[in-house]
Write a protein that binds this DNA or RNA. Structure first.
Lengths: 106, 106
DNA sequence: ACCAACTACTTGGTATTGTCAAGTACTAAA
DNA sequence: TTTAGTACTTGACAATACCAAGTAGTTGGT
């Protein structure tokens, strides 16, 4: 898959996933991979960044299957940011789609 | 506009534009800007890269409105690459679109 | 008790691509 | 001759994804 296409979109996919329910990093790697291929080295730094920007709050929960899990929870600012990102993505992808369509019919 | 969304897509838009007809850099800046905001510092290096990769051939033509123009022409390899990129983009944007749609209905 | 497999997170180096700013230079019109 | 518009180039920078390796906890098999 074209790695460049993912830029920016991964952020939206992660925000949208966590909006549904609080999730931990490893779980997110698997969840996001259902949509676009991604690995740990991409997701963890992204989570750290979004947390620094106050879009996520985190808490620890012990697990019976390994070390404790760090859960990410979307803040109010995170919800607003997600909404904005989704609107931007939708507009962007539609513009590109229309352009490709137009060219085709010429 | 989210700068990250453009990564990779600009390449497709440029290839698609030149597929229609040979174009020169400055013209492409204006053409591509109709779809997504972009400036010279992005387009010219991109054209150079795609030319190095043999997706474009170039030739000079004098202009009555300023200095000579360097025209870009899509090679056969360029056409194939464009087709592949478009297929990848279409699949990618549909996957993301479906994901966002799914989440909404839950 | 030991080891492998799975879970979970971290870190450091790298690659790619877009942005910004500044510079060069040509033509036409005021 | 100055200004605006056309046309291209370059270098420093920023953002984000990838890769590889490392640390550590838990479970299950031997």
């Amino acid at each position: 898959m074209n790695a460049q296409f993912k830029k920016g979109v991964l952020e939206l996919i992660v925000l949208e996933s966590v909006r549904q329910k609080d999730m931990y990093g490893y779980e997110l790697v698997e969840e996001v991979s259902k949509v676009v291929d991604v690995n740990e080295g991409t997701i963890y730094p992204l989570l750290k960044r979004l947390t620094n920007e106050r879009y996520f709050e985190t808490y620890l929960r012990e697990s019976t299957e390994g070390p404790p899990r760090k859960y990410y929870h979307l803040t109010v600012a995170g919800i607003l940011y997600r909404d904005q990102l989704e609107a931007e993505w939708t507009e962007f992808s539609e513009r590109v789609g229309h352009f490709l369509q137009e060219q085709k019919t010429q």
